[in-house]
Computed example of a mutant assay.
Amino acid sequence: MSKPAPTTLGQAAPTAARSLAPDLARGIMLLLIALSHAPAFVDDWNTGPAALDAVAKFGKSLLADNQARNMFVFLFGYGLVQLLLRRQAKGEDWPPIRKLLRRRACWLIVIGFANAVLFVPIDIVAVYGLTLLVLAPLVRARASVLWWTSGLTLVPATLLLAWQSVGAQTAPATIAQIMEPTLAAHLLANIPSWPANTVVSTLMVVPAMLAGVLAARRRLLDEPGHHLPLLRRIAFTGLALALLGRLPAALLAAGAWTPGSTAVRWTVAVAHDLTGYAGGIALAAAIGLAAARVARPGRLTTAVAALGQRSLTFYLFQAAVWVALFYPFTLSLHDDLGFAAALGIAIGVWALSVVLADAMRALGHRGPAELLLRRLTYRQRL
């Protein structure tokens, strides 16, 4: 059995100021999450102009589906090492840090459960929590253990995603089809399926999360200027693989072609979902390259980074907006909009999030969800 890595990871001490790249990546990631989720709340994906809907489906499949989540999870793994380094810089040993990580994991599960019950059944927060609860020791495991664990879980994770994707190719299901007519029914509807959905989804996030741990040990996003050649290789290679592997599925989603057999459908799905891991990580690397060129962040960059600093708050904000806009007991827009219109709303919700986050930054307010999680994790008084 491999021994744990040394208690202190990396050579550089954590910097006092926040690094731009991780926050900027989280802010942009929320746009991809919105694009991925919004169409799930409309009844009919073909009610809008055919050409516009086809372009929207192509773009969502190529950029967001099973790629946004991997970028999200990669950044989550990255943040775990940042937390570990901060605690080590304060002189803490591994046992209390491990206890802290597991307490954080438990509260993430609680927050994710609340999100699934109160808002929408698309939740990643509890999945993060359960994964961290089970795999907390891997945050400091040797690199070889991380590589092997990531590689071994990549195969079943991809096959599980592909199984879902093959079903969606022929009969895309939307949450609109299972929306409850009343708030009371809504609050009860997602509880029975939540445990199984969370456990199954945990397998899907392990490969990208461990990649984030490996990247954080080298401080790829904290100090992107010191790692430009590696970031370029990751970004260009990963995005090229993602483009090649995801293009057939994107064309299929747009209706540009139809597979002739089940084998072809599975091949398309596996290629799409497997290269989604590469694409999600490559997008984070590309943002790191962009951040390395920013000598002084402009207004938009600062605002998007402010959103990234409050990513949990605005992930939950998105979920609340989907309920407010689409559910039968609220504005009930689920049967009024098509696919392209839903993506337009997603972009609008993200833009509003940027404005709100920047206003919070200017006023000196942290994200309420981040503040709550911190106080619960560190057992501070509420």
Rank of each mutant, 00 (worst) to 15 (best):
L183V: 12
A176L: 00
P156M: 12
T377Q: 01
P96Y: 11
G308A: 08
A240T: 11
M1T: 09
I28V: 13
G91S: 06
P121S: 14
S193I: 09
T377G: 02
G238F: 01
P39G: 04
H226C: 14
R361T: 06
Q67A: 10
A351N: 09
T170D: 11
R86L: 09
R98W: 07
A250K: 11
A235E: 01
L247N: 04
V270G: 03
L228V: 15
A341K: 04
L371R: 08
P4G: 08
N70Y: 13
D23K: 04
A25E: 07
Q177W: 11
F314S: 01
G91C: 03
P96N: 11
G298I: 15
L231Y: 14
S165A: 15
V155T: 02
I234W: 10
G27N: 06
L331V: 14
A38W: 00
Y315F: 14
N197R: 05
L210C: 06
S332Q: 11
P4A: 12
A271T: 10
A16S: 08
F119M: 10
S36I: 00
T174W: 06
T7H: 14
M29A: 08
A184N: 00
R104N: 11
L84W: 15
H186E: 08
S353Q: 13
R69S: 13
L159G: 10
S353N: 12
V55H: 07
A143V: 13
A184P: 00
D23G: 08
F314T: 04
I287A: 10
G260M: 10
D93E: 10
D93Y: 00
L210K: 02
G255N: 05
A196G: 04
P22L: 06
A250W: 06
L220Q: 05
Q309T: 13
I97C: 08
S165T: 13
D358I: 12
W147P: 01
S332E: 12
D335R: 07
V206A: 09
P156Q: 12
R102E: 15
L9G: 05
N115P: 02
G367Y: 06
L183N: 08
G338V: 13
I109V: 14
E92H: 07
R232H: 14
R293F: 02
